[in-house]
């Protein structure tokens, strides 16, 4: 009995280890190649760690390429999208959580449907719509498009956090002399900070990763986001592996940082939703 249990525990830990290695190995390899000097790249191709390391690829990418611009553009687009979406989703999530009104069913249905249909279908019409407004090749255009794409899921996420806050608190505030909106701003929003963090992080990561619409709507380096920049860089200089991977590591940093900060809130939000449903 005892040894059986020990064996089971061992198998459990081993399985976990396999998952961790599988999850991290590609990222490790990215890092490894990015710090391998060019002359060792081929001779030590399959070694786990180069005999010498260097940061010259990072220096080149930062100093001699358009990547700082891409990075800045992506930061602006993702940051602005995250803020816009979080504000809109807080409001709409609150409406879904706290009010019963006639159109509620239709609003939920609309938001669910937008999660179902192929976004590639919107590539052409959105391009046609934004182009006369001068919003193609512009960061503002990207922010508008990304915000719309992310609002539905963010609304459901925020709603599940609002649902976790007792209604008594608003009622107490309204009796204390607040309007519903003041109660929302001063009492409910501060209590939803974990939800706001989760939503910000989720949307930031999603906007940071988006490729197809960025490719379609942006041409030229000035307004290119990181994915577009990296992809053009790859197709132009497909032999400078060290530099490409250094750029890749840089692209990874903000998204991973955000994710590590918010991942526990994300599970929490989904659990709250699961318990309710």
């Amino acid at each position: 009995m005892r040894s059986g249990k020990l064996l089971l525990t061992g198998a459990h830990r081993l399985a976990i280890l396999v998952y961790v290695v599988f999850a991290l190995f590609p990222l490790f390899w990215l890092l490894k190649v990015s710090v391998t000097p060019n002359d060792l790249l081929y001779s030590e191709g399959v070694r786990m760690w180069p005999s010498r390391t260097t940061f010259e690829h990072f220096q080149f990418v930062i100093a001699h390429s358009a990547f700082p611009t891409f990075f800045k553009n992506s930061l602006i687009v993702s940051g602005a999208t995250a803020v816009v979406v979080t504000i809109l989703a807080s409001l709409s999530g609150y409406a879904l959580s706290r009010f019963t009104f006639r159109a509620k069913y239709w609003i939920v249905a609309l938001m669910l449907i937008t999660q179902m249909f192929p976004l590639v279908m919107l590539v052409a019409p959105i391009f046609k719509m934004l182009s006369p407004l001068g919003l193609t090749n512009s960061l503002t255009g990207l922010v508008i498009v990304y915000s719309a794409f992310n609002v539905p899921f963010a609304t459901f996420l925020m709603q599940s956090f609002f649902d976790g806050i007792p209604k008594d608190l608003e009622e107490a505030a309204m009796i204390d002399g607040a309007t519903q909106f003041v109660a929302f701003r001063q009492i409910i929003l501060p209590l939803t900070l974990p939800g706001i963090a989760a939503t910000l992080g989720f949307v930031f990561t999603a906007a940071w990763s988006e490729l197809l619409f960025a490719l379609m709507l942006i041409s030229g380096n000035d307004a290119a986001t990181f994915p577009v920049g990296l992809l053009t860089f790859v197709s132009k200089f497909s032999v400078d592996f060290g530099q490409m991977m250094a750029a890749g590591v840089l692209a990874l940093i903000p998204a991973c940082l955000f994710f590590l900060l918010i991942q526990r809130y994300l599970v929490q939000g989904l659990t709250a939703g699961a318990v309710k449903g």
């Binding site: 999850a23 590609p26 990222l27 994710f259 590590l260």
Partner: peptide, 17 residues
């Protein structure tokens, strides 16, 4: 946090990687 990390990797970067 570690095993969920791939999810945070931008899809284009996952593809390149």
């Amino acid at each position: 946090a570690l095993v969920f990390l791939p999810w945070a990797v931008p899809s284009f970067l996952a593809g390149l990687n």
